[in-house]
Design a protein around this nucleic acid. Sequence first.
DNA 1: AATGAATGAGGGTTCATTCAT
DNA 2: AATGAATGAACCCTCATTCAT
Lengths: 193, 193, 193, 193
Amino acid sequence: MQAKSTGRTVTETARRAQIIDAAIRVIADVGLARATFTRIARSAGLSSTGLISYHFADRAELLDATVERVLADFSAFVLARPDDGSARGALIAFCESNVDFMGAHPDHMSVLMQVRADLAGDADLRRRDTRELAELLRRGRSEGVFGEIDPMLTAGFILSMRDGLIRDIGQSADVPACRRAYVAATLSIVEGK
Amino acid sequence: MQAKSTGRTVTETARRAQIIDAAIRVIADVGLARATFTRIARSAGLSSTGLISYHFADRAELLDATVERVLADFSAFVLARPDDGSARGALIAFCESNVDFMGAHPDHMSVLMQVRADLAGDADLRRRDTRELAELLRRGRSEGVFGEIDPMLTAGFILSMRDGLIRDIGQSADVPACRRAYVAATLSIVEGK
Amino acid sequence: MQAKSTGRTVTETARRAQIIDAAIRVIADVGLARATFTRIARSAGLSSTGLISYHFADRAELLDATVERVLADFSAFVLARPDDGSARGALIAFCESNVDFMGAHPDHMSVLMQVRADLAGDADLRRRDTRELAELLRRGRSEGVFGEIDPMLTAGFILSMRDGLIRDIGQSADVPACRRAYVAATLSIVEGK
Amino acid sequence: MQAKSTGRTVTETARRAQIIDAAIRVIADVGLARATFTRIARSAGLSSTGLISYHFADRAELLDATVERVLADFSAFVLARPDDGSARGALIAFCESNVDFMGAHPDHMSVLMQVRADLAGDADLRRRDTRELAELLRRGRSEGVFGEIDPMLTAGFILSMRDGLIRDIGQSADVPACRRAYVAATLSIVEGK
DNA sequence: AATGAATGAGGGTTCATTCAT
DNA sequence: AATGAATGAACCCTCATTCAT
């Protein structure tokens, strides 16, 4: 495995990671609107907010990088899950890994929700996710295991239910119960009544 | 029916409404964080932000009043819908009226989502909605028409799907198709597979 | 007795008095800096701050009129006190009537202190008072009952001691004791040791 | 002697001092109510009021620091004066050093008077000063050199006379004459007639 | 004479960003 | 690469004052 060539030194990469970690903590903790450079710098143990500006062009770039980081962590988590190759199995794996990730990294999901609601490029990102999931649903339909559903709309539902769970799980709800219910609801939808 | 006695003059009420209208537009347009008094005043055609402060004690009161207004419009809309009294009928009516309201007032729903995420009393409000819907689901189970679902979690799913639709419908998706799919998905979940 | 010809109607005069009364109450209550037109109008039972602006050219005129009113009340109070004609008697009468006035009208004195500290014309007003009292002291010296004192500086001391008493008497100190001590201190000073 | 450990850098300390100096000038010049950040920044030669907020949490902290500074300067001045240990000598030293300090730093005393009148802890500060001086007077009574005076009330008189002198000395009166008269008046009072 | 509404200058404060070192 | 200091635009809010009715 090889690092992407970003033209960054090791030190620079480490500092960015340190700042992004702090940003995640702070955003999850006090909310995006109150996640100022001052608070992030303090949480990261930096001596000046100037250092953040030094490593990121502006606030938008920091938030972009933060979201990128969260998504990367999320992808790594999901990809680690075994998948039996069927559309139904993949869908269940998707649901379960999502819930498990939330349970393991509540801050990440909190950040994702908050930054997305404030980001310009959000719609694109969301649409890409939806399209990917819709593709899976189409496969399921062609395999004959799913009912006559609208792939895009249904994918949206599945993602929305997941987003809603973030709140509940953030309040330390019963994770296994959430996972079971989420999988059951998803299967009910895709298989039709 | 009698208007609530607020001790406000006609002019005052009209101005407040005008400002709240502008607030709704601006929040839906640029997001809550960028919905400054300056932007709201400009959108409302006011000569200065001072007029907003004149009619609302502070930013929080304006946002409260805005949410209150959105909820009132929403309630009026939903209550106008006939209901056959059964749990299943009520649930369908809930889903359909929600989608229809979004189609008619996309800005309202956008505001609701955003302000709630930033408001102190948010969790309570959300929880109350969830509880009410959960109660309906329980009734359906006791009527024997719904499956073995967790009422609270399922209510959360139904509300989350609705929230997700706001985005899509805001981008002028096919409202009737959304309504059909939303109702179908909801019924699939509550009736079990 | 005849009213000064101010060109004001009866109603106008009454309104001004009403506003000035409220100003005195509010200034004594919350302090000059927080004595806004809004608070004064509310205390006066007026429906709008516009009415204050209607009757007074600007804030400075209201404060000027308020001080003028306080001083008039004070003069009337002091003049009502019998005076044996001697410089010593007049000085004692001055001291005693000052303390008595404070006890009877603490708000008036509070206003006087606060507004003076903020008023442009204060120095003049103060100097005039000092000069008058100094004149009395000179008379006492020529009568041979006072010692070799500097009239202006001594007059300043006597007035300063009075000003200081306002604070104490405002906190409901023992008024008769204050009066005795004030007279005694004043006599000590003017008669030399 | 060692500097208090405030955790401030040299630059920061210097800037704070510069701002405090400007605050003293402005307050003495235009009065506390008109001593805005804008005026203080201009007087200090700063580019914006933001720099004041950068160095002081808020207006209250600036005023607190300003009073603290004035009191520190005053204490240093008074402590430098030799004292023969007797109550009478201490009282004379108190009077003289006060007048001398006013002559040397008229702005300081003006600030003290104005800020105190607006500060929360004012009453306490004033009362403490009065009590200290009253203690000295009690000592003088027990040494048999002072007459039958009320210590607290008399201490109040002595302080009030001093406060009154600030005005006169601010207008460049004859300082030595003021000092002589102040000492004479004070001794007259405490020794009885 | 009086009112309620509107105005706009100015207040303190926050914060991302810049810059000299 | 990093720091602390400085900047200035923007924010919400207050308030005396103006104005149409």
